[in-house]
Nucleic acid binder design. Structure first.
Lengths: 348, 348
DNA sequence: GCGGTGCCTGTAATCGATTACATCAAGCTT
DNA sequence: AAGCTTGATGTAATCGATTACAGGCACCGC
């Protein structure tokens, strides 16, 4: 009754040839005669056949899929990166599996399992806080599937990565504020332990030091990249006696939260404080005020990482070279920053 | 030299048992004796064995994966839905493949191929504009993999879906504006042909008619859910001689764009216009002003759709019932709406 | 007329698991 | 003591493709 889905044997029978010929007609058409090819194609059409990818994958010992480990799928920052990955992967005929590393997975180490289980040919990791053991056990030579880190990474680990220059970006932000005359510059940080937090904080600190500007510990607000932590930082700012006249936030989301909370409390950006963000997420250019921020080429990060990974996969793993690609970021000046003193924060 | 990854035979040899026993020890431990089980587990440990999923999938004729068809991965609206899907899928031991339907795929009909190729056991479709033929050809009984639509859907198609009540949501938005005293109410629409566009437009129109309020064609602004189309709508609004004193936007992104552009032109929300959004995306509560909007339970939509799909998959396809789940939406009152006349739009 | 060359196609092994069926030993019933 | 049940394990078929290898056939030159 419910006829099962046709397989290559059905096609072979229908076309009056062997399965080998069908297979060849599909994946290497030039080696079969034109007549046979036609017959096979016709049989494929009439049976409604589609190649069973699982069988092909088993035989070829590759899956045509890559998995992306995302720290938090709910965070819109990653959407464009995923889009970039998907785009490059699709172009190369790969499909994309996504896994949220923060989610409790059915199998405690299911995440780990992905790597060995021949479910995917390679891995893009966007989460630098992944316990290294997960990846480390695969150190056995010849066993480790190709891995590329993107955005975040694990310090001193032997993996390729596609990242941006966080120090340079932070320095650019700080210098921009300095050029506008600001001398009290604060920084809203990411979550503790995160590489991005650290590199951006260090970039900020170094630039500040370079410019010979005051560095006050209480002007380094803790955060976690989220909208809400920007709000918290703003509340912190409000309690300060000596307030920074400008704040560089390590993410746009925090910048938005920061500005929003200040605005609710009757302060205005950039009149009372200048704010610079980081990322240039979609909403940044239409926030009120439009956010001055450090633009990250998010889609490009995704495509670059995917291409690097796929190239590695296709090179049959012979190439054990570790490549670090650093994409450049740039300042986008909009309306959330202004020269100090226009109507600036009251000086003590 | 580079020893290939161990397979079940290696484990069997190491443990001195047959492959059948190894397989049983893994997936049905209760049927093997304790001693054997221990020996097998030890052998697994010592060889570093991991089940090859592709082989298992081939034999069991299931993949343990579902694919999600997303209209535009770059749109942050979908991030939480994906997160919900991933969460529910992970809990049930499924992995998630994502495909951007707007992306040009390597293989013209690769998208279509996903369905037959035994790459996935089922499908969640978030794109209602998918040509029905893609799905239609699978009408052959017993061949069609389970499909669940979410958010968007195809009118009159025989597929299960998880959606929200768009008409009710729109009506709620309109009534809210009406209660505030507004009598000139505009609507910024989604892209033409989209089900959400239509249901929200109809919900709006019906509510307007119900309330006996003027319905002017020029107050229905065209858009496409994007930030930028909200900007365009604002420009349109500015050209009007008789302007609506309140506007209901079919997406938060458009609402943000609308407010942003107006703000740049010196108008203020809600003093000059009240604005209601739709979706309640993350930024809504921290926009300036915080957006009054129709809240969609996005994560829940994702988990619900995934659960429905997985249940269908696990029921072995015997159940051909089509279930439509409608989740409720609610108005979240924030600061982008205000009573008419406080300082309202100049009446002619 | 015979071996050599290409071109096409078929046979059968293979990828790595799962699982229906067979087997076998031990314990129990009557 | 024969027969039956039960539990543990092994044997081998199977899932659906790909591909190494082996023909078969036509055509060629000598």
């Amino acid at each position: 009754m419910d006829k099962k889905t046709p397989n290559i044997q059905d096609v072979a029978r229908e076309a009056g040839v062997s399965t080998a010929t069908v297979s060849r007609a599909i994946s290497n058409p030039s080696v079969v005669s034109a007549a046979t090819r036609e017959a096979v194609l016709e049989a494929i059409r009439s049976t409604g056949y589609h190649t069973n990818m699982v069988a092909r994958n088993l035989r070829q010992r590759r899956t045509g899929a890559i998995v992306v480990l995302v720290p938090n799928l709910g965070n819109p920052f990653f959407s464009r990166i995923l889009a970039g990955v998907e785009q490059a992967a699709a172009q190369a005929g790969f499909s994309v599996l996504i896994v949220d590393t923060k989610q409790p997975h059915a199998n405690e180490n299911q995440l780990f399992t992905y790597l060995h289980s021949a479910r995917a040919d390679g891995l893009i990791v966007l989460d630098g806080s992944l316990p290294l053991e997960f990846l480390g056990e695969m150190d056995a030579p010849g066993r480790m599937p190709p891995i590329v880190f993107a955005c975040e990474w694990i310090a001193d680990s032997p993996f390729s990565k596609v990242v941006i220059d966080n120090e340079a970006g932070s320095a650019t932000a700080v210098r921009h504020l300095h050029e506008l005359g600001h001398r009290r510059i604060g920084h809203v940080m990411g979550p503790p332990g995160n590489v991005l937090t650290e590199t951006r904080r260090e970039g900020t600190r170094a630039a500040l030091a370079d410019l010979g500007v005051e560095i006050a510990p209480e002007w380094f607000f803790s955060g976690d990249f989220s909208l809400h932590s920007g709000v918290e930082a703003a509340r912190q700012w409000l309690t300060l006696k000596r307030r920074p006249s400008a704040v560089f936030c390590a993410s746009d989301q925090m910048a938005c939260g920061f500005i929003s909370e200040l605005s609710m409390e009757g302060y205005s950006v950039p009149d009372d404080v200048s704010v610079v963000g980081f990322d240039d997420i979609d909403i940044a250019q239409r926030f009120i005020p439009p956010l001055t921020t450090i633009h990250q080429p998010r889609t490009q990060i995704g495509t670059t990482a995917a291409k690097a990974l796929i190239e590695r996969i296709n090179s049959e793993g012979r190439e054990r070279t570790i490549a670090h690609q650093v994409l450049t970021v740039e300042l986008v000046e909009r309306k959330s920053t202004a020269p100090l003193g226009q109507s600036a924060v009251k000086q003590d």
